[in-house]
Design a protein around this nucleic acid. Sequence first.
DNA 1: CCAGTGAGTAGGTTTTCTGGACTCACCATA
DNA 2: TATGGTGAGTCCAGAAAACCTACTCACTGG
Lengths: 157, 157
Amino acid sequence: MAAAPKNPRPCSIADTLALVGEKYSLLVLREVCLGNGRFDQLVRNTGAPRDILATRLRRLLDAGILTKEPYSERPQRFEYRPTRAGLELEPVLMTLMAWGDRHLRADDDRPMVIEHVCGNELVPRVTCRACGETVRHEDLMAHPQAEGWTVTGPAAA
Amino acid sequence: MAAAPKNPRPCSIADTLALVGEKYSLLVLREVCLGNGRFDQLVRNTGAPRDILATRLRRLLDAGILTKEPYSERPQRFEYRPTRAGLELEPVLMTLMAWGDRHLRADDDRPMVIEHVCGNELVPRVTCRACGETVRHEDLMAHPQAEGWTVTGPAAA
DNA sequence: CCAGTGAGTAGGTTTTCTGGACTCACCATA
DNA sequence: TATGGTGAGTCCAGAAAACCTACTCACTGG
């Protein structure tokens, strides 16, 4: 018998995680978004082994999520910065942080508070671009576009 | 010399990823949110090896993100379902999917379209709960709550 | 009785992570 | 000019995870 075909559901979540889902990648992105883009800062702040960090950085550069900008000639030194695409991953970081703050922490134990220009603390909320309402699970219907990938809960194709 | 202390930045993103950041975990959550909660469905749809899937499921159960509900006595069969906490991770899945759809796919090649009750296709957007505005990177200021964890870009503590 | 299914477990190999030391280029100071 | 320090990595051996294949166990349906 031929080996298992191994074709999981085609999915943009999976594709995105293939780029940024490895250990430390999103922490690197966090630091870089905070402006801490130097190698040793990344090592200290993420806890990644230097070795692993180097391969993660290469991958994120290749994926167009980070860029490497010189901040000193002689000794050549670089700083990693998010690209536009990298910055567009910030919502992922926000929603992860919000979940952790809600479920893993006491109210007075949040390690970081983010302030929005409006002057309030940022509590991120995901809304529907079309109608502006908060997105709730019960309000969603999934429509797989490929044959054979059914969903049994919210919807049928 | 004593070994490196290895204390990375305290962070809810890291804490959340410690629970759901391993390979396949978020794909399992995706399937479970879609209503495909049985072991063999999860194997097929995520592509995870059966033994890895078993350990991921245990971890997600322990973390209170999934529950195991019987759908048949004799033969005892269970189905995994998201808890409230699990459903609250859906925004993470939405934002990951939106990013992948935007950056890794052509417009006519999205593997899944989600319809909101409002009748439109869901395009998720992260907004500030206080003022309702779309969250943009430039509008944020990060305030680390612990000493020593500076940010050099958006803000100082 | 036999084949088939759903939900795992077991074992052995391959891949990846990890921690530590090492390099290389440069600067500062004595 | 030696001496030490920093930033940005690389290299390596041991530990841990992932992977694949096969196997079990409890049924069910014909």
